[in-house]
Design a protein around this nucleic acid. Structure first.
Lengths: 214, 214
DNA sequence: AGATTACAGTGACCTAAGTCACCGTAGTTA
DNA sequence: TAACTACGGTGACTTAGGTCACTGTAATCT
């Protein structure tokens, strides 16, 4: 399949709202790029030269603190765009947002220089960008709610539920240590809380994965 | 002074980047609205029908949890726009973002219906909107950093420093209970931490206000 | 002036959650 | 098969921070 056809397929399936001429511009100017599992798509601070649309795979966005600990924010899936790459933040700061492919991932990169005309000339693009901002904004607000108001056991439940919803499976392939990392907690704490959830019948624990039942 | 002249002054002083025809449209279609101290500008969930530009006063944005506790996010000052009012979120959720005037405040309200054409036809408006998103996004990320990675004493210091920078005075008119509220902590904890800061010579405590020295 | 209210200080206590140390076991490698 | 590694479980301990109870005192009200 030609690059044009491949791109066209992605656009038709994942971004059906885009009008035809917009799609054509994206096909002409965008480039597809592959990332293998574990590869970084971006760190803030580094200059972004492209807007990124996810067309395949799964990307994990997380915040990295000064001393190297992480904090999960949200996933980007096919059909999503990276809000940060649109905003094109350039300021260098102590802690950063990291975007890591956690599955083999394919993205469509659109030169930032195109943004102005796209926003101006294509209403569906403009709406898409706004919708992206809106969603990520709300996602961040939810994150703030959780860490500001909730205790660890509630946050754990929310986390598992989010995994379940985002990954669309109750069999979550994840270790206790990874969960602890994502929530910026420690493995022992997560282990203990999970045990309690198991006693309440909300999960079944296995080695390297767990079943979320609620 | 006529309403037109008043508006024109605000736009010239606070939004100098806007080109003339853009200013004229805003003058024609915008309405000035006053809020007195303590009045709410908005709650998310309620439908926003306008984009809000602050032209006078000070607006405090904070998150309200389910059980009524608050959490300070950031201030909006003259020359700022409310990113949330631009995004125009309509979803009703359990906790909400509140915007409260903490000084007599004047805002310019622009009908949401105008947004599309403004974005399309006026590059300076488009840049302004993007810049607004970018700033608020980063502000939220900083908030997340603080509650995720930092301990209470660090957060308190950051808070005082932010007050100092935003309000542009070292004499902060604020009670311990208010600080505790903003940080979703308790008064006793804040009192104790402030005492320690005072012993380290970083603040001087008084009744109803404190001097931030660092 | 006396009473009331808001603000701040402080000791005693409690609890969630982080840390340390150690163990068992499944899976993998040599 | 023996050794090693990753993952998970658990008891003991520590600590930050929340809660309770009470005090003092400045500011305000009647």
């Amino acid at each position: 399949m030609s690059k044009e056809n491949e791109l066209q397929n992605y656009l038709n399936n994942l971004f059906p709202s885009f009008e035809l001429p917009l799609k054509n511009i994206l096909i002409e100017n965008g480039i597809l790029k592959d990332f293998s599992t574990g590869e970084m798509l971006m760190k803030t601070g580094q200059n972004m030269r492209s807007t990124v649309l996810i067309v395949e795979g799964l990307v994990k966005l997380y915040r990295e603190g000064e001393d190297g600990n992480e904090f999960f924010m949200y996933y980007l899936q096919p059909g999503n765009a990276c809000a940060l790459s649109m905003i094109c933040a350039t300021r260098q700061e102590t802690s950063q947002v990291m975007a890591k492919a956690i599955e083999p991932t394919k993205v469509l990169m659109i030169p930032i220089s195109l943004m102005d005309t796209l926003m101006k000339d294509y209403k569906t693009w403009y709406y898409f960008v706004l919708e992206t901002y809106r969603n990520r904004f709300e996602e961040l607000l939810t994150v703030i709610d959780n860490i500001a108001f909730k205790s660890m056991d509630e946050r754990l439940e929310f986390y598992l539920d989010k995994q379940y919803r985002d990954l669309n499976t109750r069999a979550l392939q994840i270790t206790h240590a990874e969960i602890a990392n994502d929530l910026n907690s420690s493995r022992e704490v997560i282990s203990r809380l999970l045990k309690k959830m198991e006693q309440r019948g909300e999960v079944i624990l296995h080695r390297n994965y767990l079943q979320y039942l609620k």
